[in-house]
Simulated assay, not measured.
Amino acid sequence: MLIMDAVLETYDAVDFALWPTAAPSADRLLVLSGHLSPLEVGTAMAVLTSYNSDDRASDPEVGIRRIEELLDVDLVIAPGGILLQDTATGVVIEPGCCFGLENWRDWLGLLHGEELWLGHDTAAHIEQQETLVRVWPETDTPAERFIELPVAELPDLLQTVHNKLNGFLALAEQWASRYAPASAPALIAKLDEGLHIGTPLDNSRVGDPS
Score class of each variant (00 low, 15 high):
residue 11 Y to N: 13
residue 12 D to I: 00
residue 12 D to A: 07
residue 13 A to R: 03
residue 13 A to K: 01
residue 14 V to C: 12
residue 14 V to A: 14
residue 15 D to E: 12
residue 15 D to S: 07
residue 17 A to F: 02
residue 18 L to A: 02
residue 20 P to E: 10
residue 20 P to T: 07
residue 22 A to C: 01
residue 22 A to Y: 00
residue 23 A to K: 15
residue 24 P to I: 06
residue 26 A to M: 10
residue 26 A to Y: 05
residue 26 A to H: 09
residue 27 D to R: 01
residue 27 D to I: 04
residue 29 L to T: 07
residue 29 L to W: 10
residue 30 L to E: 01
residue 33 S to P: 00
residue 33 S to M: 02
residue 35 H to G: 06
residue 35 H to V: 05
residue 37 S to W: 01
residue 38 P to G: 10
residue 38 P to Y: 10
residue 42 G to K: 11
residue 43 T to Y: 07
residue 46 A to R: 02
residue 46 A to C: 09
residue 48 L to Q: 01
residue 49 T to L: 04
residue 49 T to I: 08
residue 50 S to T: 15
residue 56 R to Y: 12
residue 56 R to W: 12
residue 56 R to C: 08
residue 57 A to G: 15
residue 57 A to C: 14
residue 58 S to I: 11
residue 59 D to Q: 13
residue 59 D to N: 14
residue 59 D to Y: 10
residue 60 P to N: 02
residue 60 P to Q: 03
residue 61 E to R: 12
residue 65 R to F: 07
residue 65 R to W: 11
residue 66 R to V: 03
residue 66 R to T: 04
residue 66 R to S: 13
residue 68 E to C: 11
residue 69 E to G: 04
residue 69 E to N: 13
residue 70 L to I: 09
residue 71 L to E: 08
residue 71 L to V: 09
residue 71 L to M: 13
residue 71 L to N: 05
residue 72 D to P: 00
residue 72 D to R: 09
residue 73 V to L: 00
residue 75 L to W: 04
residue 76 V to N: 03
residue 77 I to K: 13
residue 78 A to W: 10
residue 79 P to F: 06
residue 81 G to C: 07
residue 83 L to T: 03
residue 84 L to W: 07
residue 85 Q to V: 13
residue 85 Q to G: 03
residue 86 D to Q: 06
residue 86 D to I: 09
residue 87 T to L: 11
residue 88 A to C: 13
residue 90 G to V: 03
residue 90 G to I: 01
residue 91 V to R: 08
residue 93 I to V: 15
residue 93 I to Y: 14
residue 93 I to H: 14
residue 94 E to H: 09
residue 94 E to A: 12
residue 96 G to W: 04
residue 96 G to K: 05
residue 96 G to A: 12
residue 98 C to T: 15
residue 99 F to K: 00
residue 100 G to E: 02
residue 101 L to N: 09
residue 101 L to I: 10
residue 101 L to E: 08
residue 102 E to P: 06
residue 103 N to Y: 01
